[in-house]
Design a protein around this nucleic acid. Structure first.
Lengths: 353, 353
DNA sequence: ATGAAAGCGCTAACAT
DNA sequence: ATGTTAGCGCTTTCAT
């Protein structure tokens, strides 16, 4: 009988007991073990006890891979973001995880490193694992490759940036409005020459925030000189050069709007560094998109347009599970508001050299 | 033939074509499809082309769940940490992910929220999915529940904190040495009354750092008053109260050693807040365990004992894959060095009220 | 209340 | 070079 087989291989290293082994040891049928393991009704307390003993003795743990194969659902979702080490994405990921947990699902994380090919590779690997759904922070600008997967039933929600070339659920912060408000704030404090330093133009949030900057300037009837606008990598050297350029020159800016948390931090460094030809000692006003820890402890405190990363994650995961629970409506486009937090740097008056 | 079946259900929503469907459509055997999908040799270019066409037409994607069931390896590893939103764990997680990626594995993340039950639940869920290996930052103090899983072949490496009640691979930072160095640094700058504020005593790193503090004080022949030592939650209110207590009183401390990044930030806030009875205007020296972004931009800059979270993650993941590649040696205990970074706050001289 | 049989989609081991 | 057969460990269906 199966009894014998399980006796011969009670704890072989690297192999694990199966329901069949447990059934053999408990002297019951396979299905009875399944019932006990899954808490299904139709098992007498006595039988259940015997099965449970066998489970404990053998150290049995249900193999979810096999279960998944049969049931078709993996109870896991994938999250593809740019970089888990970025302080903006940590809380977002955690929020998605909490929602997943509330629905009994695990979270598989992947960093695209802002590389479109890597995003695609990661997404398709997750699809091959048959995750039930996907939350994606796009690095790529073309998501047509996802259409067959979505048609095949993998629910997908985009967050922070919209998908490219396809329509789908998406949850965004109001980049345009937030940037416009931030720049208007600087204008309200007397600034006329304001610089904008943002992320690479292929990134949706970067161009939206630039659009907000231009709108605020236009609303106030202010010109925007080419030398005041710089989009590109958020690498400190690039940002530093951009800042020093617009702070020097013939028409130096008296205020800077920084397009995201990494840009802001570098600009703060530039403004704090010892005066040079390029970065003058005169105070320069600063408003940054994204809040960050300790922004309030710097002198002056850094005025920011805050977006709530955790809320973004919760909203996206919420949509995803609504889809998994059967919502088949048209794709929803959610835009969450931003909030201006004045701390000092954005309220400095303009000073001319 | 299978041809018919696949014609009848070419793109049914929520279902996906299988290798059998592809084989039917291409007019070849199942195994030939498998060969093409997996890039195995023994297929003529012409056949391969036909199969590839069928794959594209049907939108076939290999079901890795089935593959896993057959092969026994999932090409995924689990990482259980305290909180993905903590700036210390983001880089650690990212580093583990990079190593996993280099080995073709995906990373399943889970946050224990410092709750032992939740850690256990998460770990066992990962084991049920048959992850190939596990990197665990313990929240619990007893990991005997993991012994059967490890015996069954799930490689496990602990990081940041040692496991409880079992022996296993572990990668730690030198909490004891780092704290001792930091406190010795304060002593070298003339301090005699130094406070210690740390995390909860059940957390290994907290007690190790306290031990380092005591060692440095003892080495210098200095007494330690009970009122100068406070272990507990890292919640700001708790830390604030602890700081204010040791800064006031009959024998106020002239310097504080903060046990981790969260404690440090709160202490900085207390020291920066307007003077009160409890927190005097006189400058208080501070050294914190863990480096954090912008520590250099605060005034004074915050002197820290830095540990390299990414390196910790890389080392742990490295051990894990060494195990998966067959290393069956005794458990290894790795301790990584810390580094003192002087920025000003730790070099302030003692001042008496 | 319990169990036997079929099969989820794939790969390993053999045919041919 | 290609196809056939037998499972991987579970759940589903249908008997008993």
């Amino acid at each position: 009988m199966a009894e014998t087989a399980s006796r011969l291989t009670p704890h072989r290293y690297g192999s694990r007991p199966t329901m069949k082994d447990v059934a053999g040891r408990a002297g019951v049928g396979l299905k009875t073990v399944s019932r006990v393991v899954n808490g299904e009704p139709g098992v007498t307390p006595d039988t259940e006890r015997r099965v449970q003993e066998a489970i404990d003795a053998l150290g049995f743990r249900r193999n979810d891979s096999a279960r998944v194969l049969r049931k078709g659902r993996t109870a896991s979702i994938g999250l593809v973001l740019e970089d888990l080490a970025d302080p903006f994405y940590g809380p977002l990921s955690r929020a998605v995880e909490e929602v997943a947990r509330a629905h009994g699902a695990l979270l598989i994380n992947g960093s695209s490193a802002e590389d479109p090919d890597r995003e695609r590779e990661l997404v398709l690997a997750l699809c091959a694992r048959r995750v039930d759904g996907l939350v994606v922070i796009p690095a790529s600008g073309d998501h047509r490759y996802l259409a067959p997967e979505m048609a095949a039933g993998i629910a997908t929600v985009f967050v922070d940036r919209p998908p490219g070339q396809i329509d789908a659920d998406v949850v965004l912060s109001d980049s345009f409005g937030g940037a416009r408000d931030g720049v208007a704030h600087l204008i309200a404090h007397g600034h006329r020459r304001i610089g904008f330093i943002g992320d690479q133009p292929r990134i949706h949030t970067a161009t939206e925030r630039l659009r907000g900057y231009r709108a605020a300037m236009a609303d106030a009837g202010l010109p925007v000189h080419d030398a005041w606008v710089s989009l590109g990598s958020t690498a400190p050297t690039r940002v530093r050069a951009a800042a020093e350029t617009m702070l020097g020159g013939a028409e130096p800016v008296t205020a800077v709007f920084a397009g995201n948390n990494r840009v802001t931090v570098t600009v703060v460094r530039v403004l704090a560094s010892p005066a040079s030809l390029a970065s003058p000692a005169r105070p320069v006003a600063l408003v940054g998109f994204d809040d960050f820890e300790l922004a309030d402890l710097l002198r002056p405190g850094v005025t920011v347009i805050a977006q709530d990363a955790a809320r973004l994650g919760r909203a996206a995961a919420g949509r995803l599970f609504a889809r998994l629970d059967g919502d088949a409506g048209a794709p929803e486009h959610t835009v969450l508001p931003t909030r201006l937090i004045a701390r000092g740097s954005g309220e400095l008056p303009p000073t001319t050299p």
